[in-house]
Structures are given as C-alpha cells and as structure tokens.
C-alpha cells in the first residue's frame, strides 16, 4: 500500500510536469464543446458559405439534445482511443527500454503496487478528461437545445467512464506485456476497432464491453434494457479485473527484458 502510494506520487508528478493533466482535459473539453456548437450553427455556416440549395432540409434544426450528445459520444470514441492509447501505451514498456525501470526493480517492490500505480495515474488523467469533456458538452447542448434530466446525464457519464476505464486498462496491460509499438496497436484493435465491429455486426448479441458507448447514449432517450446493460457492466468489470491480473503477471515476467 505504501509502495503504491509512493509510486503513484511519481506518476502524478510525471503527468503534472509533462503536462498530461493539462493538455488532455483541454482537448477533451474542446471536442466536447465543438460538437453541439457545430451542429447548431451548421445551417448558418452552410448559408454563409452559400452552397445550400433552396428548399433542402438538412434535418439539423430538428435535432434533439439526445441526438447531439449521441454524436458527441460518437466523436469521443475515436478521441478517447487515440489520445488515451497514444499517451499511455508506453508508461510501462518505455521504462523497461530507457533503463529507468532498473533502478526501481532492484528494490523489493511489489509488481502489483507498480502496475496499479501506473493504472491509477493514467485513470485519473483519462477519467478527469472524459468527465470534464462530457460536462462541457452537456452544458453547451442544454444552452443551445433543450434541457436534459441531470440523472440521465450522470448515467451517461458513469457508463461512458467505465468504457474509458476499460480502454485505459487494456492499454496499460498491453504496455506491461508487450513493447510500446505492439501495445499501442493491440490496444487500438481491442478497443476502437472492436467497438466498430460490434456496432456493425453486434446485433446478434446484447452483452459486451464494446456496447457500453451505445448504452451510455441510450440513457438519454430511454433506459437501456436493464438486464443487458447491467450484464455488460459486470462483464466489463470482470474483463478489467482479468486485465489487471494479466498486467501484473506481464510486469513480473518482463523483469528479464529490462535494459540495464
């Protein structure tokens, strides 16, 4: 526990001094705001540009808050995957390669404390960014469109946070087991790519971590099918726990592969 705290402090200093705690939330907030504003003024912008044919209804003016948030979450899928994975794919593997791990691994550290400190540090940054980004998006959507139920917004943020936690855990475990390049590719395939596949051919099943994004949006229009939703949550939590175990195992196994 003490080792976890000490190592997390190091992670925190890393994310603060290397500005991850600043630029990642800023980017998420930007993308969160951009979506509702763009939709709202799309028609104006089109008219201003002047290539809007007479009498064509873009359907944009009929959009509801839920529609806008759905498209925000759709945008977030790619941003979360790209930024979280690219920012954190090296947090464990790079330390092996740049020799800094040697000075940690010669001490009697517990590998679970080491892995969990890395996971906690990345999770703090990723969740903070996600929550701020979605809150900003909600705020703008409510100003420009109609009010939304606060609890539904909270449900969306909660559900989507679990998805982000899943992405972070996949990334860190991949980094614990593989080299940086392989880890990044694998994490992208297991999160964004699988989520795309799921959205294309996923109508045959209702329970999977890759459906969390869809369920998050569903909270705004109607409650998601209760048993399907909760089963997906349980499956995701189990997957995260399994990934944590694999990550700790990978960290221990890779002691042999650190550069000295």
């Amino acid at each position: 526990m003490m080792q976890w705290r000490v190592l997390l402090q190091k992670e925190w200093r890393d994310h603060v001094r290397n500005l991850k705690i600043l630029w990642i939330p800023i980017v998420f907030v930007l993308y969160g705001i951009m979506q509702p504003v763009m939709f709202y003024y799309m028609e104006d912008i089109m008219k201003a540009v002047g290539n809007m044919p007479e009498g064509v209804d873009m359907g944009i003016t009929d959009m509801t808050s839920a529609d806008v948030m759905a498209s925000t979450v759709g945008q977030f899928h790619l941003i979360v995957a790209l930024i979280v994975i690219l920012s954190f794919m090296g947090v464990i593997s790079k330390e092996r390669k740049n020799r800094t791990a040697a000075l940690l691994y010669v001490r009697p550290i517990s590998f679970s404390a080491y892995y969990l400190s890395k996971l906690s540090g990345a999770t703090i940054v990723a969740l903070l960014s996600t929550v701020l980004g979605l809150l900003a998006s909600f705020y703008y959507t409510m100003i420009l469109y109609d009010e939304m139920d606060v609890w539904k917004c909270a449900a969306l943020i909660g559900t989507y946070s679990l998805w982000v936690l899943f992405v972070v855990t996949v990334t860190l475990t991949a980094s614990a087991v593989f080299s940086t390049g392989v880890a990044g590719t694998l994490a992208f395939l297991l999160t964004y790519f699988m989520q795309l596949i799921d959205s294309i051919i996923g109508q045959f099943w209702t329970v999977s971590p890759w459906k969390l994004g869809t369920y998050a949006i569903t909270w705004l229009v109607a409650e998601p099918d209760s048993s399907d939703f909760w089963l997906s949550v349980v499956v995701t939590v189990i997957a995260i726990l399994l990934l944590v175990i694999i990550g700790i195992w990978g960290t221990r196994k890779n002691v042999e592969n650190i550069k000295i």
């Binding site: 190091k10 200093r13 890393d14 001094r17 290397n18 740049n98 020799r99 800094t100 040697a102 000075l103 010669v106 001490r107 009697p108 000295i260």
Partner: peptide, 15 residues
C-alpha cells in the same frame, strides 16, 4: 532489500 545496485548507465526520470 539487502542489495544496492548502481548500473553502468544509471538512468533517471529527468523530471
């Protein structure tokens, strides 16, 4: 716990 080790190229987190 009873060993201290100085590698040939000690590398630290620069920040």
């Amino acid at each position: 716990a009873a060993i201290g080790f100085l590698p040939q190229y000690p590398q630290f987190n620069t920040w």
